[in-house]
Design a protein around this nucleic acid. Structure first.
Lengths: 273, 273
DNA sequence: TTGCTCCTCACGTCACGTGAGGTGGC
DNA sequence: TTGCTCCTCACGTCACGTGAGGTGGC
């Protein structure tokens, strides 16, 4: 009868020598005989099938413990069928998990791609544009701007999958106030009802001017100066509330680089009288 | 400023106390301050964002090492984008792997299901049936039946995805021979050419008799006796080669229980003269 | 002597979890 | 005193891989 040393058996089965020693130790696949003084392991041909079965089951992601119990009662077709069916479910679940991860990554990457596209064709000049009406969910507060992040979070938690765009902030003050501002944090939504301090409604559209601001928020003032100067030059009148759309800012997760923050200021105007 | 003990911080972030201590040790997320004599860890609110970022990235299956390097240069949007894109590929590959595993499991389960269906509607009686012609790839040998397993393996390796059914054995001897048999191991195939000792051709169909044999191969003799008696009774003549189709037997991987082996004997006959 | 294969034993991997044994403040 | 939270330290998990140090036969 054909006998193999561990090295030969390794080549015949595709399992490494280390793995074979480990399987021996674990009582999963014992050599046909072990030479007493040297400790050399010898395998005969009948072990090849078993080794292949183990390798096959490992390929199906069974644990060594599961494989051991499968091999112990491998003459019961029913048990085997059940183990395989169960494993099918386990694998299905893993695929589901990884799909979710892949979706999260895609969402992130798509966001980035869009931001890059905006950046690429961005004109950092005042533009005259008709603003479309927009269905929003908003929370209006008086206080510090810094708190608006929590408001966005609150709306996001409530509306989840109904969210359809970037967060925006409405400013009801004609002038700039640090700690005593009247503002409304909003998210575009595709449905839902007003409830518990959140107002769901359509934000009116109309002729307006816009300006894309690139950089940290503490420099937004300069852009406001530019856009308001433009409106004044044209003899138009700025309507309240003014809007800031946060195209790219600190995400929930990463702050990112403030130099690359991208914010669009939108102001509806009355046509010159 | 709000400070958290490790327990409070754990609740706020969803990370376990053990995990937080481990992240501290790893230099991934250090507490804001550590009380000297007691070793108590204290976290302030600013650490919550970082903890969330880490949890988010862990959810995307990044390793702690990768997360550490992402956090170190998290202000570079380009690096982050690259890391995410790379990770997207890693996840895609894992999904591919798991899909392959799922397919293997499905193949196995479908096979079992079919075998059970055959078993359920099986009639272990001689039947008269017209046998369809069948395209096969076969290796003919003289010698011991026991060697046919290797021949099947040889054909399977060569024809791989072209295989379209269960293995069958053609017997060219009129009588039973143990060690000096003339047989041909065949697999149904959908294409391919004859080459290197493998004959690809169409096996003729025609009127025949069949008998389903359930149990180990060493009891096939009884079924042969039954089917040949039937042919003789009808005044028909058995044509060579006779065929054995191994509907369920020892797979490449599992021997299964020989009591459940299922083999169909098929013999073409000349109509009574 | 060199090169090859085999052996054992101890330790590493990865991201934590478990549990023992102890402290400190209400 | 009991219960709670915090601490450190050592060990476990899973399926091997790495490497040191040594043997035995050509």
């Amino acid at each position: 009868m054909l006998v193999f040393t561990i090295g030969e058996f390794s080549k015949a089965t595709g399992l490494t020598v280390k793995t074979l020693r480990f399987y021996h130790e674990e009582g999963l696949l014992a050599p046909s005989c072990v030479d007493e003084p040297s400790g050399y392991r010898y395998y005969d041909a009948s072990k090849i099938e078993k080794a292949r079965a183990i390798a096959f089951l490992r390929g199906l992601e069974f644990s060594l413990g599961e494989i051991k119990s499968i091999l112990l009662r491998c003459d019961d077709d029913g048990d085997l069928l059940e183990a395989m069916t169960h494993q099918r479910g386990v694998i299905e679940e893993k695929i589901r998990q990884y799909r979710k991860v892949a979706r999260s990554l895609d969402d992130f990457l798509n966001d980035e791609k869009k931001a890059r596209q905006v950046m690429a064709r961005a004109i950092f000049e005042v533009e005259e544009r008709v603003l479309n009406p927009l269905r929003i969910a908003g929370i209006r507060r008086k206080g510090r701007y810094a708190d608006c992040g929590e408001r966005f979070g609150e709306i996001a938690r409530r509306f989840g999958r109904m969210i359809r765009g970037k967060p925006l902030l409405l400013h009801y003050d004609g002038d700039y106030r640090e700690d005593d501002a009247d503002f409304e944090a909003c998210l575009p939504v595709s449905g839902g009802q007003s409830a518990e301090g959140i107002s769901v409604r359509e934000l009116a559209g109309g002729p307006g001017v816009t300006l894309l601001h690139r950089g940290p928020y503490d420099q937004l003032g300069r852009s406001y100066t530019r856009i308001l100067a433009h409106i004044k030059d044209k003899g138009q009148e700025a309507l309240l509330p003014t809007r800031e759309v946060y195209l790219k800012g600190p995400g929930m997760i990463f702050k990112g680089n403030p130099k690359n923050y991208l914010t669009e200021i939108q102001i509806l105007v009355n046509a010159a009288t």
